[in-house]
Amino acid sequence: MRSIYIVEDDPDIRFILNTCLQEAGFEVSVFRSAGEFLNCFEDNFPDLYLLDVLLPDGDGIELCSQIKSHLRAAYIPVVIMSAHIPEERIVNSKANGFIRKPFDLDEIVETLRQLA
């Protein structure tokens, strides 16, 4: 089973993504904030990361940079999601994919299956 870590502060979006991706066959771990994610970051490594950009205590782009700079996690695909991010930040983020909010659940599942 492919595993995915999701960092998303909105409880409704977290619930929807968690439910949808579990039904699609992913083992899902969800984190409400950058700090919560970073506390567990080096414990285990998933097959894929899905990061929101605007977090209450950080930035998904910076989390992506930390992941891509980590020796054991650098190869793991990272997908960024946001409603309000300039294109140049996406290009410069080293992310493997981008999903614009609001999103289509089928599109998310397909994108993540291709990357995981």
Rank of each mutant, 00 (worst) to 15 (best):
Q66F: 15
N44A: 12
D43N: 14
Y5L: 05
E87T: 06
V109P: 06
R32S: 14
S69I: 05
S3E: 01
D43I: 12
L115R: 12
I99A: 06
A95W: 01
L63P: 05
S82E: 02
E36S: 04
L21P: 09
F15A: 13
Q114H: 06
I67G: 02
M81T: 01
L55H: 11
N39C: 14
R113V: 05
E62Y: 09
Y49H: 09
D47E: 01
K94M: 10
G35R: 15
F15H: 13
L63T: 09
L105G: 02
N96L: 00
A73D: 01
E88K: 11
D43S: 12
E62H: 11
D57N: 09
N39I: 06
E62V: 11
F41I: 12
E88W: 02
T19Y: 04
D106G: 00
I13G: 11
D57I: 08
I61W: 02
L51S: 07
L112N: 00
V109H: 00
P46R: 12
D52G: 12
N39R: 15
V78F: 04
E88V: 13
K94D: 02
Y49K: 06
V78W: 03
D47M: 00
I67F: 09
P102I: 08
F45C: 11
T111D: 07
R14Y: 13
E87A: 14
Q22C: 09
G35S: 15
V78Q: 04
S65G: 14
L112E: 02
K68H: 02
E27P: 00
I67T: 07
P77L: 10
S93R: 14
P102D: 10
H70Q: 14
I76R: 09
V78R: 09
D57H: 01
F41T: 04
Q114D: 01
M1Q: 03
H70R: 09
Y5P: 04
I61H: 07
D9P: 10
N39M: 15
A116F: 04
R14P: 04
M81V: 06
I16R: 14
A116C: 03
